[in-house]
């Protein structure tokens, strides 16, 4: 019966991983920009939640919206002001740009918040759920449910809204989209903003689970990479599948091999998949 517990842990973890990765996947798939800022965006979202809770008593489940909105604004400005200038350049150029920006943002956070690990200690934790033989921490489950809801919301926005259709059109054919009257640079900025929104909101949700420090950004970025490769780049369902797959791999890996090997295992699987099935579990299709 321990397997049920390990499975449940993996699913909870997977929901959070999906939320971590979906914005990264969106930006990569639509803009062909590998956004190395993504990990720092997540950490910044965690800090927004931390300070909102410390100073104003706003629960991270609510400040996820605030963190998302703040990061959307930051992402929009970064794309409109900087990345758009080199968007047509080869992918290495935008990679170096976001690498440099990440160094600046990450060190600014180190300067402002120090490298000390902080944690949101909820005054009223939800306790744990008992489902037969399975124990689940209530706050984690709630964070996962919210993460899934946010990801599902992004999916609906992309599928059913006018802006969402424009984002998908730009992903498929930027020039044809321009001929429809789409302002491609504005859509780029909105897309980058949406990616940052998801990072910020995910960061806020993670703040009740993981310790917060700028040092964690590369960890989150690494997870986002693995999820994208597992699920296939460029779709919300892909990020969901990849996230859950990574959650399960880490959960079972930790159980069988010991928790210290969980990350080694996930990156080993990443390497194998890159050789065997580089398009991911779901393969590559339109972004929706």
């Amino acid at each position: 019966m321990i397997y049920l517990q390990v499975l449940a842990n993996g699913l909870v973890l997977g929901g959070l991983y999906a939320a971590i990765a979906v914005g990264f996947s969106l930006v990569w798939g639509v803009l062909n920009v590998i956004n190395l800022l993504h990990g720092s965006f997540i950490v910044l979202g965690s800090y927004v939640a931390f300070f909102a809770y410390a100073y104003f008593g706003i629960h991270p489940f609510l400040s996820a919206g605030i963190a998302g909105a703040a990061l959307f604004a930051l992402g929009y400005v970064v794309q409109a002001g900087l990345v758009n200038r080199v968007i047509a350049a080869p992918v290495l150029i935008t990679l170096i740009l976001t690498f440099g920006l990440d160094l600046i943002l990450n060190n600014a956070m180190l300067l402002a918040f120090s490298a000390d690990y902080r944690k949101v200690n909820l005054a009223h934790p939800l306790g744990s759920l008992e489902l037969g033989p399975i124990f689940l921490p209530g706050d984690r489950v709630a964070a996962m449910v919210l993460a899934f809801l946010l990801t599902a919301l992004l999916y609906r926005v992309l599928r059913d809204s006018r802006i969402g259709r424009a984002i998908i059109a730009v992903r498929m054919d930027r020039e044809a989209a321009a001929l429809m009257g789409v302002d491609v640079k504005r859509i780029n900025a909105i897309t980058f903003g949406l990616g940052a929104f998801m990072a910020g909101a995910a960061g806020a949700l993670l703040s009740i689970i993981y310790p917060i420090s700028p040092l964690n950004s590369s960890l989150f970025l690494g997870k986002a990479f693995v999820v994208c490769v597992l699920g296939g780049l460029g779709s919300v369902p892909g990020a969901m599948v990849g996230g859950v797959a990574l959650g399960l791999i880490e959960s079972f890996g930790a159980y069988w091999l010991g928790p210290e090997h969980a990350i080694t295992l996930s990156f080993s699987i990443l390497l194998v998949l890159l050789f065997v099935r580089p398009s991911g579990i779901l393969g590559k299709r339109g972004y929706e």
């Binding site: 259709r165 998908i168 059109a169 498929m172 020039e175 044809a176 001929l179 299709r285 339109g286």
Partner: peptide
């Protein structure tokens, strides 16, 4: 309105 060469439809839409 411009119907481009090669049609350039959004294939997966």
């Amino acid at each position: 309105a411009h119907v481009p060469e090669g049609r350039r439809l959004f294939g997966a839409m």
